[in-house]
Structures are given as C-alpha cells and as structure tokens.
Write a protein that binds this DNA or RNA. Structure first.
Lengths: 338, 338
DNA sequence: TTGTAAGCGTTATCAC
DNA sequence: GTGATAACGCTTACAA
C-alpha cells in the first residue's frame, strides 16, 4: 500500500463513501436516481477528498464534451463580442462551455480552425456566414459534428441558419435614403470576396438603386478592411473624387464612426453637408455625435437562439429550424434629406 | 465479425497499415521516431479511413487537453474583448485553444466557473483581478491547475500576475488634473466591493487629493454599474448636487461616454464648463467628441503576455514572473485647466 | 436502489 | 524501429 499523492478518483470517493463507483457516478450525474442518504455520503466524500471528475475519462465514456466551438472573425468588433457573449451565456445556462477561435476576417483560416475545434472535442460549432468550401460541410458531416450558421440568413440555402437577410436589410435602408432625395451615393464596404455579409449589403444598395431608377455609376464603391482609421481614410478618398456623394453608406458602424470623424476634421457638416449611414447598431452608434443612423442587427438574439438551437439538437435531437430575424433601420442624427 | 459503421480507431489504422497501434500512435505524435516507409504506410491508412484521433481517449492517456480557460466579467466591454482576443490569438499560435466563461461582474459566480472550466479539462486558467476567496486558490492548487491573474498588478501579492497598478495609474492621472487647478472633483465608479480594480482606482484619486492637500469631502463619489446610460444618469446626479465638480473621473470609458453624452444633453460644455476623464482607452475614447482624456491600459499586451506565461509554464515548467505593465494618461479634448 | 464488470481509444513502458 | 500490453478513470448495461 502506497500513499496517494495524485488527484482522487471515483474509486477513492467510492471507497470513502462505502459504495460502488457506479453509485458515485450516478450520484454525480443523476442525483435523483440515488437514495438521499447515499447521495449525502457520496457528497461528503467528494468534498472531503476535493474530488473533481477526470475530464478525459468522462469524455471517453460519455462520448461528449459538453463543449461547443465558435469561430468568428474577431472579438474586437463589438457586434461579434456581443453575439458571442449572448451565445456563451445561453450555453452556460444549459451546462455547455464555449471554445473560441477567430479568423481575423481571413476566411482561409477557418477550415484549419474547424478541424482543430473538432479535434478538441467540440460537440457542435457556431459558424459565421455562408461562404465556405463544400468540402468543409462534408467533413463536418463525416465527423458527425452539427454546425449552425449565424449572422446571415440565406433564403436559398438549405443549411440551418439563424440570422438576418443582409441584402434585404441594406435594401430597406437604401430605399429610405433614396426616398429622401439622395442620388449620388457611396458605400464604404468590407472586402466582399469571401465575406458574404459584406457582399449582400452591397447588393442591397444596388437593388434599391435599381428599384428607384438610379444608374449604378451613381454609387462610389470602396472596399477596405474594418477599422476606424480605415473608415476615415475611405471617407477622405470619397471627398477627393470629382463627384461627391450626398449619402455615404458604411459596411458597419466602426467604418461609419471613422467616416464621421474624418468629416468633422474636414469641416464637413453631418448631416447638413452629407449623410452617413452605419450598419450593426453597436454602442458606438449612439455615442458619436450626431448619433448614427444605422441598421439595427439583433446580435444578442442571434447568439442566444444559436445556442438554444444547438443545445436542442444535441440534447433532444431536434433539428434546428432556419430563422430569419429582422434587422431594421434606426434613424438618428446622421441622415437628412438632400 | 460485424460491419463497422463507427468512426475508425487507431486499431483500424494499425490493421490496415499492417503495424501495431503503438507504431501508429508514434507515427502521429513523433513522426521522426518511425521509419519513413512505415510512416508512409500509416499515413496512407489514415487518409484512406478518414481517421481522426479520439479526443477523450487522447486526453485521458496524455493527461492534458491543450485547452486554457479564461474567466472575465464580460466580452461586452471592449477592454476585455480585446484582451481576450489577444490572449486567444497567442494561445492559438502555440497550439492551445481557449475556453471562455463570464461572470457579468458578479464575482460570486466565479468560483462555480473555475470549477466548471477545470471539470472541462482546462490545463490552466486566466483570471481577472486579485479579489477572491482563498479557498479558490487552495482548490486550484489541489487540482494542480495553474492560474494567472491579469488586469491588476498588486505589488503586495505573491501570486503570478500580469497587469498594471490601477491605483498608481489613477493617481498619476488625478495629480495631473489637480495640477490644472481642479479642486472640486467627482468619481463615477463601478461598485468597489469585490472589484479590486475599481477600488484601487478610487484609492488612486484619494491619494492624489491627499498629496495635494485637498480634503476628501471635495470628491463626490458615486458607485453604479458599468454602462453608457448608467454613466449618463450618474453625471446628471452630479450636476444636481449643491456643489458641482469641475472635473469628473470615470471608472471606465463607457461610463465617461455616457457622462459626455449627458453633458451635451444638459447643454454643459466639455471641457470648458467641466472636464471628463475616462479609463481604459478603448475605441470609444477617440470616437466621441471631444475625444476623451483617459488612462491608456495595455489590454492587448496583457492578454498576449498572459498567454505566453501560461504556455511557458505548461510546456517548459517555467514559473511565470510578475509583470507590472505601465498604464499612462492620454490627454485629449475633454480635459482643460479650470 | 445498488453493485459488478465490460468497455471506451489512446499513450507509454517495456521487451525484442 | 517495432510490437505487446498495461494503464488511464469514467459511464453504463445488466444483474442482484
């Protein structure tokens, strides 16, 4: 007999409580399948020993980790940070933990991350947007790991997704802007290759222009990376163009905040001289001055519903439904009629 | 003999490659400890079967998950979102994955989360701030899970921490403000029970006042929860007091942004009528107008260094050193002499 | 309600 | 360089 320095195991607990390991396991996992007295003994033994179950052994026997992976562009953008926070909160309420990986908007990193999170035992995955290689879906299927797509709702896709229609949302907003008499427009966008949300937003503006008979040459389209300084630089570039727009759409609020700052620096008055429109409706939007007209995106709701869908699928086998949430225009101080 | 529908195991690979499971395991984990020809056979078998190693079994045998947990107040505050992002990036570069839990600033939730993340197999933990029950440290030790403390550097604590001295940082800033002639001060703070960062920041202001001979009655101290609207409400309350401050410190930039907004609503000019000072230096700070005078906190650096420290500890057994980073005042438009 | 015992799929220690 | 084989600590039929 040797002194035990290692962490206590189920067997140690069972020994101290005077029951079998099976009973201890049950006392932990299904407390009400065990007599109250027995449970008490087990609990005492557990706290006396400072026992905590071995993760690997548990995973191996139960064949699930109670862990769900999320792969997002970046937590630095509040819209994802909030969505993730809501996702994690809801997951936690159901006994699941969140694993995080981020692509930094480099979508080619995503595949490696999916593989890695699965190798880390993720029971399911949260993915942003629809645009990815079909191989990946096959891999997910082969590994039997369900994935839910958020942040974008694509009516043409069969895959379970919880999001909103980026094109329709931007289309709505653009119609209102055109209605106000704006005919010279601009869009400061994220890069649209491999970012379906940005692509759809661009399409939304174009569709609205077409609806109202504006030629597409009336849209000055700039692609850049997300960031305040990038938004500012793009705005400056727009102001240098031979024809200035009277309304500048931005792919998100961060770009819009940058544009707004640059407008102030250039002595251009918003919204009297020019209108600026954001997208996302994050904190930034109502902290800048004038407060930003933007498209409100239900980020928290998306995160929460995605978590619920995955938990339901994992626990009840209920296939997630496709949910098309509403994103709607919010009119604040940066938009005015021509 | 039955047909196999389940995912292939090491044994299947070994069978197909005509070698032992030990060799397959070595071929995967230590490729150069295996003859080139053998490795080739194994790799062929792996790809032919679409084999991928079982996480639970691997964890159980290897006794590590290559997973590190982070417990933070909330990702909704950009300062934590960014720190986390940097933490996760660095972790990923070293082959580790991040598990996340959040307390919503309710520190009594933390203990449960620590237990849960450990039960989820976290090899190590990132914790925010120093104030927690000593039991928890004992538990961590018993479980043999290292933890690093960030966001606060406490010179009096022995525990490994990577952060900055919240009191000293606020002290520096307050000295400068007092130097400018401000004698009636206010502080809109987070609740200081169980939030050592907020407590230290408060102490920093008080210390500066004492240094310069200002009576502590000259500080109007308000505790509230973090949020833009909360900051606005607190600011309104300050303006209703019989004696108005000429400089308002805020526990973070979010509160400061709220205060700034309320000032505008009340027709109070910043910085001519009143100065407002933030803390953190997040994006918000240079997007509001006037841009916020605030204390720059090296959030990304903290996250990165914390990741590095943990990885070094886990992989090389190198004990983390205590690192006291510098947080320094940034002077922008919201502060002016009396 | 509880106990017995058979896995689960790796890794790692030995021999060879 | 390679192969047997013994852990690893839990869950879960099945039996009592």
């Amino acid at each position: 007999m040797t002194t035990q320095y290692s962490t206590p195991t189920l067997e140690d607990v069972a020994g101290l409580a005077g029951v079998s390991t099976a009973t201890v396991s049950r006392a932990i996992n299904f407390p009400d399948k065990v007599a109250v007295k027995t449970r008490q003994k087990v609990e005492d033994a557990i706290s006396k020993l400072g026992y905590s179950p071995n993760f690997g052994a548990r995973v191996m026997a139960a064949r699930q980790t109670k862990t769900i992976g999320a792969i997002i562009p970046t937590m630095e953008n509040a819209v994802f940070a909030r969505g993730l926070q809501a996702f994690q909160d809801e997951l936690w309420n159901h006994g699941y933990t969140m694993l995080v990986a981020s692509t930094g908007y480099k979508d080619d990193k995503e595949e490696e991350q999916i593989r890695s999170l699965i190798a880390r035992g993720a029971d399911a995955l949260l993915l942003i947007g629809h645009s990815r290689n079909a191989d990946i879906y096959r891999f997910l299927e082969a590994q039997n790991v369900p994935a839910i797509i958020t942040w974008a709702f694509d009516p043409t896709s069969e895959r379970p997704s919880i999001g909103f229609d980026n094109k329709a949302a931007m289309h709505d907003m653009a119609l209102q802007v055109i209605e106000m008499g704006h005919t010279q427009l601009a869009l400061i966008s994220a890069e649209t290759t491999s970012n379906d949300r940005a692509l759809e937003r661009h399409r939304g503006v174009l569709a609205a222009m077409q609806d109202r008979g504006l030629p597409i040459q009336n849209l000055n389209f700039i692609e850049t990376t997300y960031g305040i300084d990038e938004g500012a630089a793009a705005f400056a570039q727009l102001m240098d163009a031979p024809i200035r727009p009277t309304a500048v759409f931005c792919g998100n609020d961060v770009l819009a905040a940058g544009a707004l700052r640059k407008a102030r620096e250039l002595g251009i008055e918003v919204p009297n001289d020019i209108s600026i429109i954001g997208f996302d409706d994050i904190e930034l939007a109502h902290v800048v001055h004038p407060p930003l007209t933007t498209v409100h995106v239900p980020h928290r709701e998306m995160g929460r519903l995605a978590a619920l869908a995955l938990v339901n699928l994992l626990q009840e086998g209920k296939q997630p439904e496709k949910i098309n949430l509403k994103a709607h225009p919010i009119f604040r101080g940066t938009l005015a009629p021509v």
